[in-house]
Amino acid sequence: MESSGPSVGDVVTVSAVRSTVGQKTLMAVSGILLVLFLVAHMIGNLKVFVGAGSFDHYAHWLRAIGAPLLPHSGYLWIQRAVLTAALVAHVWAATALALRARAARPVGYAHRRPVQGSYAARTMRWGGVIILLFAIYHVLDLTTGHLNPVGDRAHPYGNVVADFAPERWYVTLFYTLAVLAVGFHLRHGLFSAVRTLGQRTAAGEQRARLVALLASVGLCAGYLSVPFAVMVGLVG
């Protein structure tokens, strides 16, 4: 009676993006793409522990992927395009669903609801906004270098070290909060994405929740290790 579940690729042909289920599918797929990027990005970040040469080499290598078939930085621009599209889709679907949710309850409850769902689940929307703001800052800081104290695009290692210098503790603090927000966002988001794509057993739900938790903790740990290593002088 059961046929095989839908694969992620099927979603592209969903004609019903206007439906609530279609919109959350869009969120799930775009969210998963963004998470895959986060994983790759984190692995790259960890090269900072190998040393300046390795880290800078990695950054340059990213621009050389696909050569000579692709022009310099070609792959990177493809990836940026995909990520931007995913981000736009993610934010668009989130906004559409949020507006819909607001319209669905014109009169709120006088008595505030006590907590039932998880903190992560209830903070998806504002958490998402924080993450978005951070992402913009982060690009201006470490990609374009505009907001970085050094801003030397040829030597990203130096940019990172300068960024998280102990006297710039507020940058580290903002970075930490943003990474924790990502963690919370993914703890519910990953589970939710899997559910949206058709996960439908109790055991599977437990697995999905566990994976979401481990992924969130792992990403948080990976991302936070860099600034704290810089701060305590482990990397410098």
């Binding site: 609530t20 959350k24 819909r100 039932q116 769902g117 998880s118 689940a121 589970f191 996960q199 109790a202």
Partner: peptide, 23 residues
């Protein structure tokens, strides 16, 4: 509104319909 899998529904459901049905 649309579902965001928060599970508030199943917490109050008098018949305990599980969230998996939405999956």
């Amino acid at each position: 509104g649309g579902c965001t899998n928060t599970g508030e529904c199943t917490a109050v459901c008098p018949k305990g319909i599980p969230l998996e049905t939405i999956g």
